[in-house]
């Protein structure tokens, strides 16, 4: 039985991860720590677990792993504290808002000899796994190009505050696509061009749209849209899609397009109710197994760093108005 804690419920994914821990017989959510006490207490009540207000008391608990789901800029301090306490860490994406912080996080975990994983659940999406298999099988031949999207509704709150997030939609919604591309192709990203801006949501100090162009090893050309462009009235939270152009054909995947349409007169919008597999569950299951076996999680801190490098380069490119080499 792996005993797991969650640090901060600032990121809404914490609720999904907690629910996954509940679902897994081999894991137990033994405590929650949150610098926002009322949020932490509420979550503890919801998931029927303990709330611990002091960080050192929380980290002193008999627990082998923690999930860090704080604001992006606080990942570093939290992962460092958890690693110093000997805990295995699963860190929400992006691993950090800067390359220096991402490297520091990795170094801290190496130094403490604890495993570090980055939360890229897309790798556990069953349609995505099937597509990766198709690409690996060679039946589509060489991969030439891809265009992907990670659109979302506006998350608001700290996500759109530069000082807490380190960046807007481009920061939030580039990393999943980058990680999936690296994972599917086995190639690294070499160049980044980005146009971004705050064009859709008012009163924020981050971008809410990023239109990216990447180049990968072997000359694979990639277009990506990272955005918070889905309105409140949109039937779901957003999407993760890829069109992959290969020598012998084209593969299109819309990872969450397993849904039923629901129309309810009490709601302000029609709703797409998702019925496919839960990628978060695969992610948490792997982390729990890593904790149990005292191994690295499958999606590592270095995977997290690679995605951070691309995001950081995207902002550099947007500021410089040219393509940036990684």
């Amino acid at each position: 039985m792996a005993r797991i804690g969650i640090m901060s419920f600032a990121h809404m994914h914490a609720y999904s991860y907690a629910a996954c821990l509940d679902e897994l017989v081999e894991a137990e959510l033994i405590a929650i720590w949150d610098d926002n006490h009322s949020r932490g207490k509420k979550a503890a009540k919801q998931f029927n677990t303990a709330f611990v207000a002091e960080l050192d008391k929380f980290l002193a608990l008999d627990m082998q792993g923690v999930i860090v789901t704080s604001e992006n800029v606080r990942h570093r301090e939290m992962v460092e504290a958890a690693a110093a306490a000997g805990k295995w860490v699963l860190c929400e994406k992006p691993l950090a808002p800067t390359v220096a912080d991402a490297k520091a996080v990795i170094a801290a975990c190496r130094h403490a000899k604890v495993g570090l994983g980055t939360a890229f659940p897309v790798r556990y999406s069953i349609p995505m796994m099937a597509v990766r298999q198709m690409l690996k099988s060679g039946e589509y031949g060489e991969i030439y190009a891809a265009s992907c999207t990670n659109n979302g509704q506006f998350p608001g709150g700290w996500f759109a505050k530069q000082a807490l997030s380190g960046g807007g939609a481009t920061m939030d919604h580039t990393v999943h696509a980058v990680d999936a591309l690296r994972w599917m192709t086995g190639r690294e990203i070499t160049h980044v061009y980005s146009e971004n801006g705050n064009l859709l949501r008012h009163g924020i100090d981050t971008d809410d749209v990023g239109s990216l162009h990447l180049e990968m090893e072997g000359g694979i050309q990639v277009s990506h849209v990272a955005s918070w462009n889905r309105p409140k009235s949109f039937p779901t939270w957003g999407d993760v899609t890829f069109e992959i152009v290969c020598e012998k054909g084209v593969i299109r995947v819309d990872a969450f397009n397993q849904k039923i349409s629901v129309y309810n007169d009490d709601a302000v919008r029609a709703e797409w109710a998702y019925w496919g597999g839960n990628p978060d569950l695969g992610l948490i299951q792997d982390f729990v197994a890593a904790v149990d076996e005292r191994r690295e999680p499958t999606v590592t801190g270095v995977d997290g760093l690679r995605a951070v490098e691309v995001t950081v380069a995207a902002y550099k490119s947007a500021a410089a108005g040219k393509m940036v080499r990684i």
Binding site: N196, L199, S223, V245, V250
Partner: peptide
């Protein structure tokens, strides 16, 4: 200021 992604495919 509008950002437009335009994709054309003959692939």
């Amino acid at each position: 200021g509008v950002i437009a992604k335009v994709i054309g495919t003959w692939a």
